[in-house]
C-alpha cells in the first residue's frame, strides 16, 4: 500500500466522498422517474455511513452514482460527486475504469452475479489483481489467497479452486468481498449485501465488514432497509425518503432520538415482543411514486404533523445538534 500512501497524504483531512446537489432522473418514453432529488453527502476517511431507506427511496441509485454505474443514455445527472478529490461525473472512460476497483469498489446483494460461473473463484480474483496492478499470474494467485484469509474463509487454499456455484451463500458473499478488496480500494460501497442471507450468516458478514474496515482503514457506504443492520454496522446513518436525505446523524442519535417524522414512524412501527397484543403505530399510506412526486415534502401525504407549508415547499435541513440534522418544517413537534 506504500505506493498509494504518498498520494493520499496531502489530502488526509479532506472528506473522501463529497456529494452536493445530486439529482438523478431516468427518462423513458412513458415517464420520467425522479430517483434522486438533491442529495448532499460527505463521508470522512475511515467512516461507515449507512444510507437507510425503503424501496424507491433512491438509496441504491445514489450509491451507484458514486461509481457511475447507471445506464448513461437514459440517465440525467446533475450536481457534484467527488471521490478522493476527483470529479466522478466528469471522468473520462479510461480513468473511470481505473477508478472502479482501485479507489472505489462495490459489493452487491447477489454475490453470484459478480462471478463468472465457468472460472474458479481464485482465477477470477487473480485475474482482477493482474489487470489492475500489472503483476504476474502467480503473484495474483498469492494475493487471492491472502484476500481469502483476510475475509476469514476457512481452508482458503482449497476454496480458491472452487467454482462459484460450489460456495454457500455466506461463503460467496465473503468471496465477493475479497474480490472487491483485491485492489485495496479506499471506498467500499455495499448495496444490501446481507439482505439475502440467513440471520445467522448476516451477523457474521456484518461483523466481518466492521473488522475489515478497521484493519484496512477503509471508508464504507452501506445501503440497507433494515434498521437493525444499520445499527450494527454504522458510525453515521443517513435516512432517505423520496430521493432525498431527510435526516442524518450519528448512529446513536438516529436510533435513539430520531427527529424526522419518517424516521420516528419507522422506529415506532417496528414489531417486537413488547408490543404484543397492541396495535402497531403504522405509517399510513404507501411510499411515493417517483414519477409523480408531490411538490413539497415527499413524506407530507403520510405525515401526522403535516401542515400546508409541508405540501407546498421542500423543507431545508435544520441542525439539531452537531452533525445531527433533519429536513422538516415541523421539527418542534417531534421534540422528545
Amino acid at each position: 500500500m506504500n505506493q498509494t500512501a504518498e498520494i493520499v497524504a496531502p489530502q488526509q483531512d479532506q472528506p473522501l466522498v463529497q456529494v452536493s446537489g445530486l439529482e438523478v432522473r431516468f427518462k423513458s418514453p412513458d415517464r420520467t422517474v425522479h430517483a434522486v432529488n438533491g442529495v448532499d453527502l460527505t463521508l470522512k476517511r475511515g467512516e461507515i455511513l449507512t444510507i437507510l431507506g425503503e424501496s424507491g427511496s433512491g438509496k441504491s441509485v445514489t450509491l451507484r452514482t458514486l461509481m457511475r454505474l447507471l445506464p448513461e443514455r437514459r440517465t440525467q445527472l446533475k450536481g457534484q460527486v467527488s471521490v478522493d478529490g476527483r470529479d466522478v461525473l466528469a471522468m473520462p472512460q479510461r480513468e473511470l475504469r481505473r477508478f472502479r476497483g482501485r479507489t472505489a469498489a462495490m459489493i452487491f446483494q447477489e454475490p453470484m452475479l459478480a462471478f463468472d460461473p465457468v472460472f474458479t473463484i481464485g482465477q477470477q480474483i487473480a485475474e482482477t489483481v493482474c489487470r489492475h496492478e500489472g503483476v504476474s499470474h502467480k503473484e495474483g494467485l498469492a494475493r487471492a489467497l491472502e484476500l481469502f484469509e483476510l475475509v476469514r474463509i476457512p481452508s482458503a487454499r482449497r476454496r480458491l479452486a472452487n467454482y462459484p456455484h460450489e460456495l454457500s451463500g455466506g461463503m460467496s458473499q465473503r468471496a465477493m468481498i475479497a474480490l472487491a478488496l483485491s485492489c485495496r480500494p479506499r471506498l467500499l460501497l455495499a448495496d444490501e449485501p446481507t439482505t439475502a442471507l440467513d440471520a445467522t450468516v448476516q451477523i457474521q458478514i456484518l461483523l466481518l465488514l466492521r473488522e475489515l474496515q478497521r484493519e484496512l482503514d477503509m471508508s464504507v457506504i452501506f445501503v440497507t432497509h433494515d434498521m437493525g443492520v444499520a445499527n450494527e454496522i454504522s458510525d453515521r446513518i443517513a435516512v432517505m425518503y423520496g430521493g432525498r436525505i431527510v435526516e442524518t446523524g450519528k448512529v446513536g442519535e438516529i436510533i435513539a432520538q430520531p427527529r424526522h417524522p419518517y424516521t420516528l414512524g419507522l422506529m415506532n412501527s417496528r414489531a417486537s415482543g413488547e408490543l404484543k397484543g397492541q396495535r402497531l403505530e403504522a405509517i399510513p399510506g404507501s411510499p411515493p411514486d417517483l414519477a409523480t412526486l408531490p411538490s413539497g415534502c415527499a413524506f407530507a401525504p403520510r405525515c401526522p404533523y403535516a401542515i400546508d407549508t409541508c405540501h407546498d415547499s421542500v423543507p431545508i435541513a435544520h441542525t439539531i445538534e452537531g452533525q445531527h440534522w433533519a429536513a422538516c418544517h415541523r421539527l418542534e413537534q417531534t421534540q422528545p
Partner: peptide, 15 residues
C-alpha cells in the same frame, strides 16, 4: 443473531 437495536450494545460475536 438478531441485529441489536441498541447502539450501545452491538453484537460483538457471531453466535
Amino acid at each position: 443473531a438478531m441485529p441489536s437495536m441498541d447502539p450501545n450494545q452491538r453484537t460483538s460475536k457471531a453466535p
